[in-house]
Amino acid sequence: MTNSNENFLKELHHPDVPVPEGMQSAVAVTSFGKLIDSIYNWGRRNSIWPMAFGLACCAIEMIATASSRFDQARFGMEVLRASPRQADLMIVSGTVTKKMVVPIVRLYNQMAEPKYVLAMGACAIGGGPFKEGYNVVSGIDKYIPVDVYVPGCPPTPQALLHGLIMMQKKIDGQSFGNRNSMPWYGRGPSEEVPVPVLGPDIVDPRQAYLLRREAAAAISAAEAETASGEADSGV
């Protein structure tokens, strides 16, 4: 018993041996990189500035979360910024309409990296009860990447706080070692999300190829129909 324990400790001090899974939570720093990560993430995690950006009903619950009873300030999130340049987190709180998604994408592009998006409420996640409507976007994640989803209609302030804590956990998991989790330290400027166009319906420029294909298909279908129609009348 004591022997195995000693072995275990020896293993633990050995730099090449990874920390066993069950022990990782008890050991704060396992490498220099992790130390940098944890300091960096600690700072970012505790000073997320959300954008004061209300869309619909959920925005009221967001304000309630920011006010004295639920008090986001306890998480370092008290500064609701109206300008996207000063914000880290976009809380998409409410129904996203086709008319509104254009400014939202623009605002998202204007935010400085690292930036995060939290979809609050059923509408922002997937269109919610208004999903079937002609002017409603069925989920903001169809246009911009979303980090945390908070379901509910509307989520209570405590549910939103739970989502924000999830957001903090997500930030905690990011690491310099893993470029995929921090793409903003890659070379060159980050890619902007193309702004949708208000055409006969909302158009996502990323789907231009699909549109062309569908249009061609529609035209050929129409041609086939007229051809068959002519054939029918000929008979």
Binding site: K142, G199, D201, I202, L211, A218
Partner: peptide, 13 residues
């Protein structure tokens, strides 16, 4: 399109 959209036939961007 996987989105809540419809276009008049033959519409392209």
């Amino acid at each position: 399109y996987g989105k809540n959209v419809t276009y008049p036939a033959g519409f392209t961007l």
